[in-house]
């Protein structure tokens, strides 16, 4: 059983390291800032989580494993917020993305099913 845990954590750590390096390589290869952000999110999500899962198996059921959970929570709750702020700031600064296809002008289909009932019910809309 201990051997299985040992090998599992080894595999997880090796895979996580692979995705970290791949994401960093992507940040070098991609042509503009928006596409680089996709490469960076490979580091932030898959690379980091696999590595941390591997470390958690090594730590066992201790406070250290709990702290690793906090590290994951930090990355998962604040990572997208930072990416979103970065993308919005770059758009605001008129940095034109390299696009193969621009569908920003497309008509967005109306909400499926739920829309009429919401108007009749007159529920409060927190977004207003």
């Amino acid at each position: 059983m201990e051997m299985i845990a040992f090998y599992a954590s080894w595999v997880l750590i090796a895979l996580g390291s692979f995705f970290l390096v791949a994401g960093a390589l992507g940040m070098l290869r991609m042509p503009d800032v928006y596409t680089r952000m996709h490469a960076a999110s490979v580091i932030d999500t898959l690379g980091a989580t696999l590595l941390v899962f591997g470390l958690m198996i090594q730590a066992g059921l201790t406070l250290v494993a709990l702290k690793l959970v906090f590290v994951l929570a930090l990355l998962f709750f604040f990572g997208p917020v930072a990416s979103h702020a970065l993308a919005q700031a770059a758009l605001h600064a008129d940095i034109e993305p390299i696009l193969a296809e621009d569908r920003r002008g497309r008509d967005v289909p109306p909400k499926a099913g739920e829309d009429p009932s919401r108007k009749e019910g007159g529920q409060h809309d927190p977004r207003q």
């Binding site: 791949a22 991609m30 999110s41 696009l99 296809e101 569908r103 909400k111």
Partner: peptide, 30 residues
């Protein structure tokens, strides 16, 4: 999706086709 993005990165031709789009969020609460 991380696996597919990694495959894109490691592909020597870098076959990306960046796209901007708009979608509707069907959720009711903020």
């Amino acid at each position: 999706s991380a696996w597919s993005v990694t495959r894109l990165i490691l592909d020597p031709r870098l076959p990306i086709s960046p796209t901007f789009t708009r979608v509707r969020a069907g959720q009711k609460t903020a």
